[in-house]
């Protein structure tokens, strides 16, 4: 029984991997093939004009995957070089972005989780603060940028502020939701054991709401990573968002595509690490 189950699992995983690799190869093959499709008529003599252009195409094409792989190899084999403000390694750029995201995100968590707790515990605070949250939450984080630049007068700090403001809402609302939804029975257990409010908060409500809070944190880190790219395109200077825009200005599409892929990979890693943490606080009822 067990044996067949295991076999089935393995074979499913193997089959899925094979399929994924096939899809990858197929799409890369198509991409590569379409890029290299000979624009020259079969076996015909080159015209003088074509000879002058040495076979180059008239319209620029998206670079093929082979070029991107080569570029990726170059970049990733020396990710931390620094050759001036306009030429830094991908590692350095990602490092700047991560630093901003994590700073803004952790500040947001430090504010959102206690306030969320308060809102979740007290119907009064919920009713009093809800209108503010409802108005502030739908504002695109980038809309804050001019105001932040004016008040803070520092582009670096403004970017961090934008991350802060965009990641605060999911954490705030999820914490409030999780805290308000803690089963009455569990709170009663705390009450019948004469736990103080502080002990009730830490020993019963926090562990009970932790999975919901972690879900909010996971949503927030995803949004923060989405927003940092746009914020850095605006602010400039350093970071992966700036890097993408800078390479576009350089008309280096190979680097643009490579950095898009890196944004995806780092975003995935951020999400995975929070999913890993969430495993420690989830419980089955």
């Amino acid at each position: 029984m067990d044996r067949t189950t295991t076999e089935w699992n393995v074979s499913l995983n193997v089959r899925a991997s094979v399929l994924a690799v096939l899809i990858l190869l197929l799409s890369l093959g198509l991409w590569e093939g379409l890029n290299h499709a000979p624009s020259l008529g079969g076996g015909e003599q080159l015209s003088e004009y074509e000879q002058l252009l040495a076979g180059a195409e008239e319209s620029a094409k998206v670079p093929p995957p082979s070029e991107i792989l080569v570029r990726a190899w170059e970049e990733l084999s020396d990710p931390f070089y620094d050759a001036g403000p306009n030429d830094k390694g991908i590692g350095i750029q990602l490092g700047y972005s991560l630093y901003r995201v994590l700073t803004g995100y952790l500040l947001a968590a430090a504010v959102a989780i206690p306030i969320g707790f308060l809102i979740g515990m007290s119907p009064l605070m919920y009713k009093a603060l809800n209108p503010f949250i409802q108005v502030l939450r739908p504002i695109s984080p980038l809309a804050w940028m001019p105001l932040a630049l004016f008040i803070i007068r520092d582009s670096e700090a403004s970017a961090i502020f934008v991350i802060f403001i965009c990641s605060i809402w999911p954490m705030l609302l999820n914490t409030a939701f999780g805290v308000a939804g803690v089963r009455k029975d569990w709170v009663n257990v705390a009450r019948t054991h004469e736990l103080s409010s502080l002990k009730t908060a830490f020993k019963v409500i926090l562990p009970a709401a932790a999975p919901t809070i972690l879900t909010g944190m996971r949503i927030s880190i995803g949004i923060a990573w989405l927003v940092i790219v746009a914020a850095e395109m605006l602010v400039g200077g350093t970071g992966i968002g700036y890097y993408v825009w800078n390479e576009w200005n350089n008309l280096d599409l190979t680097s643009v595509i490579f950095s898009i892929l890196m944004i995806g990979v780092v975003g995935m890693l951020l999400d995975m690490s929070l999913a890993y943490v969430a495993r420690f606080v989830t419980y089955a009822e």
Partner: peptide, 19 residues
Amino acid sequence: NGPGLERGVVFQNYSLLPW
């Protein structure tokens, strides 16, 4: 007047802390 440790309760739905 309010809950206290000198009175213990066993609830129908057990009320164990699942974590």
